[in-house]
Design a binder for these strands. Sequence first.
DNA 1: GCATTCGGTTTCATTTCGCAACCCACTCCC
DNA 2: GGGAGTGGGTTGCGAAATGAAACCGAATGC
Lengths: 161, 161
Amino acid sequence: MKWDEIDQQPCSIARALSEIGDRWTLLLLREAFLRTRRFADFAERTGAARNLVSDRLEKLVAAGILERRRYQERPPRDEYRLTPKGLDLHPVIMALVHWGDRWHDDGRGAPVEHVHRTCGHVMHAEPSCSACGTRIDPREVTVRAGPGLRGLPDADRIGSA
Amino acid sequence: MKWDEIDQQPCSIARALSEIGDRWTLLLLREAFLRTRRFADFAERTGAARNLVSDRLEKLVAAGILERRRYQERPPRDEYRLTPKGLDLHPVIMALVHWGDRWHDDGRGAPVEHVHRTCGHVMHAEPSCSACGTRIDPREVTVRAGPGLRGLPDADRIGSA
DNA sequence: GCATTCGGTTTCATTTCGCAACCCACTCCC
DNA sequence: GGGAGTGGGTTGCGAAATGAAACCGAATGC
């Protein structure tokens, strides 16, 4: 299977990865969440080649994750901003940062800290159950086939309700 | 910058992506969380070419995310299982699935549902603050330079305490 | 007029991917 | 014992993606 066919899999991860699964794309998104908005800054801060930055930003705009906006006419300058769909990736980024902090600490501590303005503390994201609100223990989560998988061969493997 | 230098960035995301940022790697991990353990199953279920499966599984083992274990001597058969470091990616996977469900619904509903055994309901992961426990609103989270960034040029850009 | 900045595009050598074919150890079945 | 089948890979090769650097063009700044 080629990479550009993976979004046809009946899998939310495959579909998500078809848009953001690229090596550089998530780094660009990291920058977007750090309020980077301009082409040259994306290129410099991620360390990606400019042609790749150009290509990936365009794809993110096409996917509706970033929005390109003219913010100045003379000289014409555009900026790339997160759309609601893009902002909704915040939990993914937070989870990734937390994992990196835990398992790739170089002994000097986290490079970046998150502060929760609501309570004022340094924090990380902790997954909680949308139904009962308690903290999630991975072993307490089971998977089953949902409506989007009915009648497909994978349904057996995963098991349904 | 080449991709294999990316883990030198003082950024937890960059470091995390250096291990799991590959296109196919996250699909393999999806399968691992669905209790896939054998080579042929990984290849078939992700749709990746076998040489890539071989290469990526090896890298995941080297990274300590999967563990290769002989579970039968004659004929020799190994299986790949998630280590604690690998299991700790659960929040990342959950977040990705949820995003995929929200923004890539093909009209038939989620392909896979998560059930919280603790409360018995279909759920998704909702990030909550590790300090105060309330649900996180992305706009209420600010970022600042942490100890791992002290003295580096990026520190200014991000702003410190 | 001349240099500089921003935001790219083009070119081209190097890597990586995708696919099919091959290999080997072992088991099953007759 | 011969032949087919299975699990778990490796090899080889053409096609596609990547990375570095050069180039471009519009708009200032001086």
